[in-house]
């Protein structure tokens, strides 16, 4: 089976502020592929480059070299016009449900905006908006209201509906549940899975939370300092990691149970001591 999205040797650099400053390399040669209908979880800590990878796929980050192919076609470095044509295939759900919805627009116009940009008639768009709201479990009268009338979880449902409006084949989800409360988070994650099973959309699911990624991902990639250090099936990467960094990451997350956390704490100390062999000392200090 061929991949839907193939990323090869991707390098992204941001110019640094100041004259003659060396640019900051956010991604240092990243390769990854996502198959149709699959969730690829992407974990990493702040500054690891996981968000940059998502933005590069969306065409929002400056690609220096390497390739991003969607359905066999190169999509990095497209013109704005070509990129617009791609919008029905690749969509996004951002982390912050507060700033990702324009506060001055109604939910109805937020959802119909991508439709009318592609020439869908107003009445058709209205029907589609009602469908979308239903799909994400919001009442149909939500279309007349504005973002501030909704809670964080509801806003994230609206953002999901907007992403689904054009029936994309890939959705980049950038920390879509990390601003949500625990109980809301679980419900929104289930919505993501339910939509995937129904529509066959693929997700690039970015999160710093191993347990969230483990819950939604078929496969998981771990990023560290602009590189992918480990890729594999979800249960393998999140339960039996191979790379030392993934092991440390895994051990660092506290288990929500007092006695098991006590055990985990001891294991973590042991792991860190074991990894403090000469070759690893430097990278451990960098943490």
């Amino acid at each position: 089976m061929t991949a839907l999205l193939t990323i090869e040797d991707l390098v992204v650099s941001y110019p640094k502020k100041g004259f003659r400053a060396a640019p900051f390399r956010a991604l240092k040669g990243v390769s990854l592929d996502i198959r149709p209908g699959e969730t690829m979880g992407l974990v990493g800590e702040s500054g690891s480059g996981k968000t940059t990878l998502g933005r590069a796929v969306l065409g929002l980050a400056p690609v220096e070299s390497g390739s991003i192919r969607f359905d066999g076609r190169e999509i990095s470095g497209l013109s704005r016009r070509e990129r617009r044509a791609l919008s029905s295939d690749i969509q996004v759900v951002f982390q912050d449900p507060y700033s990702s919805l324009n506060p001055s627009m109604t939910i109805g116009s937020i959802l119909s905006e991508p439709l009318s940009a592609r020439g869908v008639s107003e009445s058709d768009a209205r029907g589609r908006v009602a469908e979308l709201l239903d799909d994400v479990g919001l009442p149909s009268d939500a279309a007349q209201r504005r973002a501030r009338d909704f809670s964080g979880g509801q806003r994230q449902r609206i953002a999901i509906a907007r992403a689904l409006a054009l029936e994309p084949r890939l959705v980049v989800c950038d920390e879509p549940v990390s601003a949500l409360d625990l109980t809301t988070q679980a419900r929104v994650l289930d919505l993501f899975i339910e939509i995937q099973e129904r529509t066959g959309v693929a997700y690039l699911f970015i999160s710093h939370d191993l347990s969230v990624v483990r819950h939604v991902s078929h496969r998981v990639a771990v990023m560290y300092h602009g590189e992918i250090v480990e890729v594999g099936n979800g249960d393998q990467v999140t339960a039996r990691p191979v790379h030392p960094y993934t092991q440390r990451l895994f051990m660092a997350a506290p288990v929500p149970h007092p006695r098991r956390q006590e055990v985990r704490r001891v294991e973590r100390r042991r792991l860190i001591d074991a990894q403090r062999t000469p070759s690893e000392t430097t990278s451990a200090a960098a943490l």
Partner: peptide, 18 residues
Amino acid sequence: LLGAILEDGDARKPLESH
């Protein structure tokens, strides 16, 4: 709240078709 904790759940299975 305790029921919403994800840590204890199983990891999602790989995509069956491949």
